[in-house]
Each structure stands twice: as structure tokens, then as C-alpha cells.
Design a protein around this nucleic acid. Structure first.
Lengths: 239, 239
DNA sequence: GTGCCTATATATAAGAC
DNA sequence: TGTCTTATATATAGGCA
């Protein structure tokens, strides 16, 4: 979670001392979070941790509190229990789904950033050397930026004339936005690894046809090459 | 804990919808943390949460897992349980103690930053107008900076001559360090409030003589006014 | 191991829809 | 009410003493 270029892999820490250090830190953090949740929301909760470092389980808030919570828990009908058996599995599934969403979004963002860089190259050297696909995406991106600028200007027209300079500044920032940003790292894979470490069925999921459709969402990004006539940018930047 | 100038008070959230929103977010966060702890450290743990939002308790990892953990827990001798009764209280005490440490540190830091600002004022307008106390502290601070610069230069002498410009840059940064920083907000008080909300004895603690000694730790900061002869700064900046 | 520090990664309170 | 976004606050991995 920190101070590491590569994100810590969410898997069993094999280094003994590192694992113990992490255990102690995270145990403390977990207890604190439980404490805050209980205080902020006025609810009853408990945490129980068994570890090789202590013969006795470590608990929050304390043994009496745990037993009180347990008493309530025990009252839960046994039938309900089997019904909720898959709590953990669905939990993991949710995380995988969300990770895939993020991956998709990152792919799109990366593409947009690539196009932004290319856009500026075009503004400097023209864009005749690009592939047709890239030309399309660049057109789309420039158009999108211009539309946003237009929208912003429209919304600002409703305010007194004095703020016009702000509008100009904002649009300039928007145009420059992302030009120097590095591409963000991709997410998703780590969470999948996490799940794989604790659950079977990873291969099944990986081979799921759904995954193949998960890549860059072309239909939202592309502008048909032949549709250039409805783009405003070329007449704007290359009159 | 965010997007708010004043840190969220760690106390029951009275606004119903806000409380529910916070509950859901933090519940999710807590479960995730428990999950990570379990994976990273290969230990058995469980979380049980009772809330008014669900008739059934919400658990991690799942009911079977909880019951397995509970089985271990139940084996704990009853005598041990009473022995650990005060878990929560000592937990809060630890947090208060730590918060006080932080408060003390912040007070010291703030003082140091004040002195840094004053130092630069001095460098511009001389420091004849300061109180004796401030003159002392300013002397101390300038001296400290010069010592650090000296130390850094010494450590850099061990490296090839080519890096000398780096040394100069670093020392310049160190001199400028903090000049434009705002004073940090004080911590500690909120945690105390948190404890007060969940524990009695707050007033006793507040009135504890210890607290009176908790302020700015003068002996580490002050340099006796009469000891100016061992300072190097005055001859450096005011030759 | 024991602590502290700080750069980063996460969590999350408010806002905007 | 639920979702998404964004500015901040926390948590914490890896270093160092």
C-alpha cells in the first residue's frame, strides 16, 4: 500500500518478520476502524483475530462485548446461515467485477491520454503521418474538448461579463489538461490475483468469454472516419 | 475524514442518512481490511456487525468461517476473559497517550515554524524589535539550520566533487524549508473528545497535573540568552 | 525484534447528479 | 436514495536508528 513502485501483492507474506510487522500494524488499524464504525454509527460489532503470535484470540471491543455480540449472532436462525453461506464468495465476485470496471475505465483513460498527447503533436506538426485509426480518435478527442469548451463558455455566459477571463483561463486549462500527465497504472489484476489466492475457479473466470469483451470500449471512443464532415476541429485548427 | 475543513468529530452521527451512508462505506472498508489482514498474514479472523439496517448480523468472512473462529474463541478460559476485561479502556488510554505525544510534537513544530518565519523577517529587517524570548529561539533555530547544513556538506564531501552543486541546492532548500508552509493543525483534542464520548473519566484526565506539563517543551527549544557566545549565526548573518 | 519517519496507497466525507 | 467524483484524511510498506 505504500512506498513501493509495484503495489504490494495481496497474498500471503512469506517473509516472517515482515508478516508479523504487517500483522501488528493492520490489526491495530482494523481495531481502530471497528471502533470508529461503532462510535460513528452507534452499532454493535466485534472483531476476533486468531494468530500464531498469541495463544489467546485478540478481540475488539473486549471479551464481554464480543460475547454480547455473539449472543445476538447465535440467535440467527440456522437456515439463514446456509442461505448466506456464500457471503465471502460473492464478496470476492463483487471485488472482481469492480476491478474489471476500473480496468475498463483505465484502458479508456489511457487511450484518451495517448490521444491527447498525439493531439498536441498534431497541432505542432500536422497529423498526416498517423494511422487512420489514430486520426479518427484524435478527431474525436479534439471534438470532445471543443464541445466541453463550448459548454463551459455557455454556462459562463449566464454569469456577469466580468468573469469572462475566468472562462478563458478554464478553457485553456482544459485544453492543456493531461498533456503532461503520465499514464496511470492499471488496476484490477491484483484484485483478481487476490481472489485467486483464496478461491478456486480463477481459471474459469479468466477464460470466461466476458473477459474478452472487456477491453477498450470502441463504440464510445471511435468516430467513423467518413464522418469527418460533422467535426468542427479541422476548420478550427487547420483552416 | 475528508473534504471538511474541520476534521469530522468522532462521535455518533445524528443525521440519519449521513449515518447510514457512512455505515455502509465503513462497513465495506472494515470487511476489506479484515480480508486483507487474513490473506496477507494467513490468520483466522472474523467480524460481526449488528445494525438497525439489517435484521441479520453482517459478518466476515461468512457464517461458517465465523463459527469456526467462534469455536476457537469459546475455548478461551473464562478466567482469561475477566483478566482482559479492560481491553477497550486500555485501548482508549493508548490512543489518548499517543494523541498527547502528537500534540506536544505539533506544538514544537509550530513553534519552530513561527521561528522560521521570524528568522526570515530578521534577515530582511534585523531582529532588534523582538522580545528576548523570541531572539533566543531565533538564534537557536538559525544555529540548528547551520549545523544541519554543515552536516550535509560534510556528508557530501565524501562523494565526488561533481555533486557539489547538489549540496548547494539541498542546503538552499533546507534554508527555505518551511518558509511558506502554513502551520499545521493541532491533533490530539479530537481523540480526547472521542474518548470522552465513549468513556467516563474525561474530566479527571483533563485536570490531571500531567496535562499542565504537556505544553511546549521549553528545555529542548530554548537557548539561554546569555549563551550567545556559542552561536555561530550572528557572525555569519550579521558580521 | 522495536520504534519512528515519510512517501504512497487507501479510505472516505462532501458534493454533484 | 444510490452513484460517481474529488479533496482530504488515514493507513501503512519499507527504511533507518
Amino acid at each position: 500500500m505504500t512506498r513501493k513502485k509495484e503495489k504490494l501483492k495481496l497474498a500471503f507474506i512469506t517473509n516472517d518478520s515482515a508478516r508479523k510487522a504487517t500483522f501488528n500494524k493492520r490489526k491495530k488499524g482494523l481495531m481502530k476502524k471497528a471502533s470508529e464504525l461503532s462510535t460513528l454509527c452507534g452499532i454493535d460489532a466485534c472483531v476476533i483475530i486468531h494468530s500464531p503470535y498469541k495463544s489467546q484470540p485478540e478481540v475488539w471491543p473486549n471479551n464481554l462485548g464480543v460475547q454480547r455480540v455473539l449472543a445476538k449472532f447465535e440467535r440467527m436462525p440456522k437456515m439463514e446461515q446456509s442461505k448466506k453461506m456464500e457471503t465471502q464468495e460473492s464478496f470476492i465476485r463483487q471485488r472482481i467485477a469492480k476491478a474489471n470496471e476500473q480496468l475498463k475505465k483505465k484502458l479508456k483513460d489511457n487511450r484518451e491520454k495517448e490521444m491527447t498527447e498525439i493531439m498536441y503533436q498534431c497541432l505542432r506538426r500536422g497529423h498526416q503521418n498517423l494511422s487512420m485509426v489514430d486520426q479518427c480518435d484524435v478527431n474525436w478527442l479534439i471534438d470532445k474538448n471543443l464541445k466541453e469548451i463550448g459548454k463551459k463558455i455557455e454556462s459562463l455566459k449566464k454569469t456577469p461579463q466580468q468573469v469572462a477571463p475566468v472562462a478563458l483561463k478554464n478553457t485553456k486549462e482544459m485544453l492543456g489538461n493531461g498533456m503532461h500527465r503520465k499514464k496511470e497504472k492499471l488496476l484490477g489484476v491484483d484484485l483478481a490475483m487476490d481472489a485467486m489466492n483464496r478461491s478456486h475457479g480463477f481459471n474459469e473466470w479468466m477464460n470466461n468469454p466476458h473477459y474478452e469483451n472487456m477491453g477498450f470500449d470502441g463504440d464510445k471512443m471511435m468516430v467513423p472516419f467518413g464522418d469527418n464532415h460533422n467535426l468542427m476541429w479541422s476548420s478550427f485548427f487547420f483552416p
